[in-house]
Design a protein around this nucleic acid. Structure first.
Lengths: 211, 211, 211, 211
DNA sequence: CATGAATGAGGCTTCATTCAT
DNA sequence: CATGAATGAAGCCTCATTCAT
């Protein structure tokens, strides 16, 4: 094997090894939270030696950041697809909105452990890693609010609702649905949930009364 | 002073001292989270000696449970008042719903540190104190879902929306609003938020289109 | 016992405990040097628990500084006595110089382990604790050079010798004598050494030749 | 190329590689001391791989010994030249002594890093490599004392001064001068220092008094 | 020979809990 | 009851050495 080929292979191996440790870290951080998770837990689950961990991460915090990065990368890809969608055409609007909600739910439930970690930090405010997390959070919020404003501009969403409030509704509700699904560790009927969402979005929750 | 009176006084003092420590614990747990909070932090803030802490709590976990208990007690009182309300009369329904939402927001923002602690654990699932927290959570969920079902029965809420879903909407959205208000550490305009809620509940978020 | 008396006693105990740990630290640092010495070595020798060490010192480095402080305090006391001495009177000058040399040797050999630690650092340049050590070193050098200049002023020492050079002679030679005595772990004949010093100081080392 | 020639060339290459690592080791040990120096430091400076280091040295300690060996070899060469010198002729004695002192100072300052390492260990007594160092030290002392005795025999040096004491004066003073010059990292005026030495040797340091 | 990923013993420090005063 | 010194298990991280490629 040529030197070049060997180096390339080594790089691949290195990346693979790193992923193997991140996989373990996801499991452990999801199970115990950042503080309670120990390096011992991670290396045991990853099946590597203590020193090996530090070949790939300089600290526990960096490993945690790698976990958040993994989520962030997937999130960005998802958000990019989302943005590409065209809401301009009013025909089939609800159908597309429903599809979009479903996709987000599927995305968040695809790797439940990873989602747990990220959502958990929503409130955790741990001074140790707030930085990285807040970066992700801000990006997500900005994306969300921008989308809401756009939908208001093109008159899909009513303009008399505050984007911040709507964002709280979307984000908070989704978070609840996902965390509960994960806690119950059973696959929820996402189609039914999407239907519920559409009903809510379309007509609120109050029973129409005779005027 | 009679023996009986002395004992009562001692009990009162004891209770007062305990509250003093719980006060400190609320501050510290809110500021750092359960794991990062140390007994040293708590006793320093409470102004008691290390040993004294263990005269009132057998462990850090028990002190945390006392904090959750404090929230739980206040929550039960709030829920009791809520339940006493009468939704039967359709006259002024929205006004009463609005008042109710406002009251919950005010309750949750009244002691922001305490609320922070409880909501933070919503996602934290720390094996150390899950027990106590889940108890509170289950009680809250049960209360909420029961209320929703009741409102559906009396035809205030539409029956085609799943109580679990509605609960996620209420709980998740409220949690987001409250946590953000606390994070921004500025008093939000609760009246305006209540108005937003009512608009959402009444007619959803989608702009009505020509049929 | 009154609260005040108890506190005073506690303070005494605390000081005593601290000294006990510093005693152990002196032994260990003298035996292995700063880097090779471990906290485990020190606490074992001191007969205290691991945590106890950190009640008195925030780090290994601080314990080392405490050791240097001990030397520094003794050194300052010694230098103060030295300075008080009067060299003005030319009568009995050599006798007083001899007494002074003897005192320094005795001082340095009084606690050989402590002296070893300090002299070892003369060349060790360990970035970890250089700060504290250099402070001591500079103080000693300043004291020494000042004394030399004074002795030149009052015409005890010849003025055609550079104070820096003379300082190197005094300091270097003394260091050698002391380190060797410690290495051989036998008490040297200090009187004889003092005599050698006086002979050197008085007439150099070269045999007088016929002019 | 013949097998023999190839082997010789390989041996040369091997020797060159080894020297390259020793060069790096000198830098690193001088900069950080034995304990704080890491293999990582050495191989980085030498530009070789981790495993390569262990092809030339079985351990960190052995690399350190190689460094000491380098000094020892140079020292022996220097001492040999020194011994060859003829002090018998009293004519120009001081001039020759001065030349000799100058040569030693130059030798010690020629490779300051190497000298730093060796002198540093004078006091360091690190159990890890005491063996090798003490060997060098004993050789140096023996050489020095033998030279002193010889100079006393031929009546260059006074016989009433103890060779051990004189050795401490020479060794200790030189060490101080050299270490300080290195620490100040400026080339000292060696000629002036030699003059100071001669003055000291010739007539001591005390100002002659009227008898 | 050269490489560098992997190893794990060992070091420093923290902190919940105990207990003698 | 109150105190705070003492404890030691447990956690994070480093680094000399090994070994498969």
């Amino acid at each position: 094997m040529s030197v070049h080929a060997r180096k390339r292979r080594a790089a691949l191996d290195r990346e693979r090894r790193r992923e193997q440790i991140v996989d373990a870290a996801v499991e452990v951080f999801a199970g115990k939270g950042y503080r309670a998770a120990s390096i011992a837990d991670i290396i045991e689950k990853a099946g590597v030696a203590r020193g090996t961990f530090y070949l790939y991460f300089t600290s526990k915090e960096e490993a945690f950041n790698a976990v958040l990065d993994r989520f962030h990368a997937r999130y960005r890809a998802m958000a990019a697809r989302e943005t590409a969608r065209n809401y301009k055409n009013p025909i089939g609007l609800e159908k597309r909105l429903r599809a979009s909600l479903l996709e987000w739910l599927r995305f968040l439930l695809e790797d439940p452990k990873l989602t747990t970690i990220v959502f958990r930090q929503a409130a955790a405010v741990d001074p140790d890693y707030e930085e990285k997390y807040l970066e992700i959070l801000r990006a997500a919020q900005a994306h969300s609010i921008k989308a809401i404003r756009f939908l208001q501009t093109i008159r899909v969403l009513r303009a008399d609702l505050d984007p911040g409030f709507l964002n709280a509704v979307f984000y908070g509700t989704t978070m609840q649905i996902v965390l509960r699904a994960i806690a119950d560790s059973r696959a929820p009927d996402l189609e039914a949930i999407a239907d519920q969402w559409i009903r809510l979005l379309r007509a609120g929750v109050l029973r129409a009364r005779a005027k």
